[in-house]
């Protein structure tokens, strides 16, 4: 058992579906597509073969490509791939030409040639301002920058070298280390007065050894060889033997050593050249 209002409801729905408010916007002819979307156009055109006009620049709003061109009895059956880059109405004939350049007849009109491309953007879309590129103030280019940087670097280096050179020439008396002669004299004086303890006696012996080694130019020789040469030297050998008797012999067997006579020549040792002053 059916509801008595059902046929009426069906009629109303059919009438609403067929109303003009739901109809697609009227287009002059051909398919309607959106910007950037590829659409395939199939058309049969009598006459010779057509080909897309090659794009010479990037300003063309339409990109057209022949997918297939099959010969028919009096013309060609084309399948064209179209991508519109701007919204608007397009006539595809403006983007085609005869393959045979001698053929001058106009391309016959077909409804498929007329393509309406709609925008995907909603109405009222705010379009950003055009960019206004500014050119920065140029310093003369990359080469000039390199030259300037190199010049500054070299100048800095010269300044540092000159400054360091002046620094090394400056007198440094307060920080100058004591010379061998400076250290020898007080030890000798103390030794002559008999006031040297074992530590300072050891220091005195080491300084006298170094003194004679440098005086005889034995710094290059090995320590044992240098000592052997020193002992063979008449003056240094006598000194070293006296020092051994004085500082190293056991007390019970120690022979008397004339410390005054031994150390007197070293009271006035000159600073330069390590010579003994007359």
């Amino acid at each position: 058992m059916s509801h008595p209002g059902t046929p009426l409801l069906a009629i109303l729905i059919l009438a609403w579906c067929g109303s003009p408010c739901l109809a697609q916007p009227a287009t002059p002819s051909g398919p309607q597509v959106l910007v950037g979307m590829s659409v395939m156009v199939e058309v049969i055109v009598p006459g010779g073969e057509l080909e897309p006009i090659p794009l010479e620049d990037r300003t063309s709003p339409m990109v057209l490509r022949t997918v297939a061109a099959d010969a028919t009895a009096n013309g060609f059956h084309y399948r064209l791939d179209c991508v519109a880059l701007e919204p608007g109405a397009f006539d595809l004939r403006r983007h085609l030409r005869w393959k045979n350049p001698l053929e001058k007849a106009p391309i016959p009109d077909r409804p498929e040639w007329h393509l309406v491309v709609g925008s995907a953007l909603p109405p009222g879309q705010v379009i950003p301002h055009e960019l206004d590129p500014h050119t920065n103030l140029s310093l003369g280019g990359y080469r000039l920058i390199l030259w300037v940087a190199s010049t500054l670097w070299v100048t800095g280096l010269v300044v540092i070298l000159l400054w360091r050179g002046k620094g090394s020439q400056a007198p440094a008396h307060p920080d100058q280390p004591e010379t061998l002669a400076d250290r020898l004299r007080p030890l000798v004086e103390s030794g002559l007065r008999g006031e040297l303890g074992p530590a300072r006696q050891a220091e005195l012996e080491r300084i006298l050894l170094a003194y004679w080694r440098r005086k005889l130019g034995l710094d290059q020789a090995g320590p044992a060889d240098a000592l052997r040469h020193l002992k063979a030297h008449p003056e240094a050998g006598a000194l070293l033997r006296s020092l051994e008797q004085w500082l190293h012999q056991p007390p019970h067997a120690r022979q008397p050593v004339a410390v005054d006579e031994m150390l007197k020549p070293y009271r006035q040792v000159s600073v330069t050249g390590l010579g003994v002053a007359p």
């Binding site: 004591e178 250290r183 080491r206 170094a210 003194y211 080694r213 710094d219 320590p223």
Partner: peptide
């Protein structure tokens, strides 16, 4: 070691003959 033995007469830490060379 030779440098150490040669520099025994110097103040500890001062430049040794080898170092000076």
């Amino acid at each position: 070691l030779r440098d150490i033995l040669h520099s025994l007469g110097d103040v500890p830490g001062a430049a040794s003959p080898a170092s000076r060379r």
